[in-house]
């Protein structure tokens, strides 16, 4: 169902000398990311790990073009991100990135199908029946085709996360960004969600996931350890063999 990437192995994300400061009142600032260098290739399953406050979510947000780096360089698919307007970044996010959050962040006023369709709306797909068909296709992929017309508030946590995954996939992005996607789920449901992400990665989808759960490393092809805004350890390997 998900296209195999013909350009597997090509750098998708290139960060060089990235620093991120947050202002803390007058003349004070918090140095969140320090001289960070990271390259993520297409088809990788990268797990960013670290304790709370290590800067992992900030890094994910910078990669996802939701946040801006203070200094350094960022190339997305070999193109510089610096200097892009908000509109251009929105277009890039919409077409190339799918977001999955710990708290799912679905829109309660929309039903399941409408939630999944939303990125297509922003992409400019005018045909609503096409949007519905696509939404249904991805709901089938995540295993909840029958929930199409339900309200999101009537779903379990696991089901909501599946809807969020379907929404992240609906524009067939190059990369999925997941911020603690199993953090709010019980372990069994968490495994089911990870199985979906693993399967997507098997079909060539690049996945960058933030977690503090050591057990998750078995799903990754690379683990990046952050501490106080610096990469302290980076482990490559085959899935199931990577251990930090």
């Amino acid at each position: 169902m998900v296209k195999d990437l013909v350009t597997e192995g090509k750098p998708l994300i290139e960060l060089a000398g990235v620093n991120k400061y947050y202002p803390l009142g007058k003349n004070a600032q918090l140095h969140v990311l320090k001289e960070l260098n990271l390259t993520i290739n297409q088809g990788e399953f990268v797990m960013i790990m670290g304790k709370s406050g290590s800067g992992k979510t900030t890094l994910l947000n910078i990669i996802g073009m939701l946040d801006q780096l203070t200094t350094g360089e960022y190339f997305f698919n070999e193109k510089p991100v610096a200097g892009l307007s908000e509109n251009e970044k929105s277009e890039l996010r919409n077409a190339n990135l799918g977001f999955i959050f710990q708290q799912f962040f679905l829109i309660d006023s929309l039903n399941v199908s409408q939630n999944v369709s939303l990125p297509m709306v922003y992409k400019g797909h005018k045909n609503s029946s096409y949007r519905r068909e696509q939404a249904q296709k991805y709901l089938e992929l995540v295993g909840i085709p029958e929930k199409e017309k339900q309200k999101t508030t009537e779903l379990s946590g696991g089901q909501q996360q599946r809807v969020a995954i379907a929404r992240a996939l609906v524009n067939d992005p190059l990369m999925i960004m997941a911020d603690e996607p199993t953090g709010a789920l019980d372990s069994e449901t968490g495994i089911a969600i990870m199985d979906i992400l693993t399967s997507l990665n098997d079909h060539g989808k690049t996945i960058v996931m933030v977690t503090h759960d050591e057990d998750m490393t078995r799903y990754a092809s690379r683990v990046v350890h952050l501490k106080d805004g610096e990469i302290i350890q980076e482990i490559h390997g085959k899935r199931g063999e990577v251990k930090s």
Binding site: S90, N94, I107
Partner: peptide, 11 residues
């Protein structure tokens, strides 16, 4: 959320 999934500011 809408901004994250690609809604432009003008939208």
């Amino acid at each position: 959320i809408k901004r994250a999934i690609g809604a432009k500011p003008k939208v």
